[in-house]
């Protein structure tokens, strides 16, 4: 009995840890079966959609089949129409989001780091937040006209609140025991903010950024349906006039992909900035 135990123990003690590390880098990583299984149902749905359309069970006038959508996406891309509108939409989101991050972070820091700042900022932010911001569209049109400003302002407004709220909450949620430890270690207020408060608030703030991105796309869709002359929203509204459901669906698909891509981007930032969290530590 003891012999068999020795035999199994031998190779492991001979070369500790080296073999598993080598195999991990040596293999090309294939998707696991469980990942493939996740995509099975969506793929089946798309297939049956195509079949149903070809069999005449679904009106192709009201709902273009997948192959037509793919064809529309292709032709829109080669004519340069889709890239152009995509660029216009992206520009609106990027500018709007940049404003939102700047405003949300400034306000969040002001309210989070001082009682005076909280009194000055928080009540107004909470009141504004209670207002569905899309209800401001008529006012914005009156103030900013129907041009780019209204669209960017909508994106910025929608994304500011989640960023502000989560940053504020994150700062206020810092473990007071850590702050106390910092005090004993001789950190002044600036040191506490830099080494304790901001890193502690970062996970929440990044969640806020992800929420903010979601709201930004939503505002973009609404904004681009107000008398736009370019952008994915314009493409969709224009296609509606001509009953081009294939183009409409291409537009929706692009919105979905953009949202997904933006989310992945924030997740990437999270993986880098929050490498210390246990779930991520174990992965790396």
């Amino acid at each position: 009995m003891s012999v068999s135990v020795d035999l199994t123990a031998q190779p492991a003690s001979d070369r500790p840890a080296a073999p598993p590390a080598a195999t991990r880098h040596g293999f090309i990583r294939l998707p696991k079966p469980s990942h493939l299984r996740r995509f099975l149902v969506p793929v089946l749905l798309v297939l049956s959609w195509q079949v149903a359309a070809q069999a005449g069970w679904i009106s192709t006038r009201l709902m273009a089949p997948p192959l037509d959508i793919a064809a529309a996406a292709w032709s829109l891309t080669v004519t340069g129409e889709l890239p152009y509108h995509l660029l216009v939409s992206l520009q609106r989101v990027v500018i709007g989001l940049a404003i939102a991050i700047f405003a949300g972070v400034s306000l969040g820091l002001t309210a989070g780091l001082s009682k005076l700042g909280e009194d000055a900022v928080d009540a107004s932010m909470q009141m504004l937040r209670a207002l569905p911001f899309l209800a401001l569209v008529p006012l914005f049109i009156l103030w900013f006209g129907i041009g780019e400003t209204t669209k960017i302002a909508l994106v910025a407004l929608g994304a500011t609140f989640p960023i502000y709220l989560t940053l504020f909450g994150g700062i206020r949620g810092v473990d007071p025991k850590l702050l106390e430890a910092g005090r004993i270690l001789g950190l002044d207020r600036a040191g506490q903010i830099r080494h304790i408060i901001l890193p502690a608030a970062l996970p929440q703030a990044l969640v806020g950024l992800r929420y903010g991105l979601g709201t930004a796309w939503l505002s973009l869709v609404v904004g681009e349906q107000i008398n736009a002359t370019a952008g994915i929203g314009f493409l969709v509204m224009d296609a509606r006039e001509f009953l081009r459901t294939d183009v409409i669906l291409v537009g929706l698909l692009v919105y979905a992909l953009l949202g997904l891509g933006a989310d992945q981007l924030v997740r990437m930032v999270e993986r880098r900035a929050l490498a210390w969290r246990p779930s991520l530590v174990r992965e790396g």
Partner: peptide, 25 residues
């Protein structure tokens, strides 16, 4: 003065040696 608390009170976002160095001038 220095304190070691019952719970370690390390900053989870700083690597071990950064925690040790925190606040040193």
């Amino acid at each position: 003065r220095a304190v070691v608390f019952q719970e370690p009170r390390l900053m989870p976002w700083k690597r071990v040696w950064h925690n040790v160095a925190l606040g040193l001038r």
